[in-house]
């Protein structure tokens, strides 16, 4: 059985043209991708390198002028006990990323959560609704400019019984 390190170095050479940057921190590899390559890279990782499980999708708000948001994907390769992180950066001017639901079905709810909290839209998502907040809520709570205490009156409270 090939070890995961071999798989990693193999995928780094074979995908070199589509990787913007590689980061190694405490034994965990992070690949930065351009968002237009995301789905094709994910398909290759699943079919050719054994990443059969999408553990998590999350967003971050870096509060910078360009490429303000990040969407982060945590992948696992069960047969070789491997872990890989993918990062795509999203600019405020175009808050969309292609959905990876077609590759891993589990992305469905994870991407809905990112959409709910950051307002990043996922193209080709089968059911992009808010995950936690009420459907008619007008804000995205994990954005840095959103006040911690919330916005008065943004969610109506039922009248007291």
């Amino acid at each position: 059985m090939p070890s995961f390190d071999e798989t990693l170095s193999r995928l780094q050479t074979e995908l070199a043209g589509r990787i913007l940057k590689t980061d190694l921190h405490r034994g965990e590899t992070t690949l930065f991708l351009d968002k237009k390559d995301l789905v094709s890279v994910c398909q290759t990782l699943k079919s050719g390198y054994g990443f059969n499980f999408l553990a998590d999708v999350l967003g971050t708000d870096r509060f910078t002028d360009d490429d303000r948001y990040e969407v982060v994907y945590h992948l696992r390769n069960f047969s070789e006990s491997g872990f890989l992180r993918l990062v795509v950066r999203v600019d405020e001017a175009d808050l969309t990323v292609d959905s990876v639901c077609g590759v891993w079905k589990t992305a469905n709810w994870e991407e809905r959560e990112v959409f709910d909290m950051y307002g990043i839209r996922f193209n080709n998502h089968p059911d992009l609704r808010r995950m936690y907040m009420p459907q008619d809520f007008a804000y995205h709570p994990l954005r840095k400019e959103f006040p911690l205490i919330g916005i008065e009156g943004s969610i109506p409270l039922p009248a007291k019984e």
């Binding site: 936690y132 907040m133 911690l148 919330g150 039922p158 007291k160 019984e161």
Partner: peptide
């Protein structure tokens, strides 16, 4: 109480 945009500050605001 202080930092929760999503939490009702006491259930007594909706039911006795």
């Amino acid at each position: 109480w202080q930092h929760g945009y999503h939490v009702v500050k006491s259930v007594s605001r909706i039911i006795p």
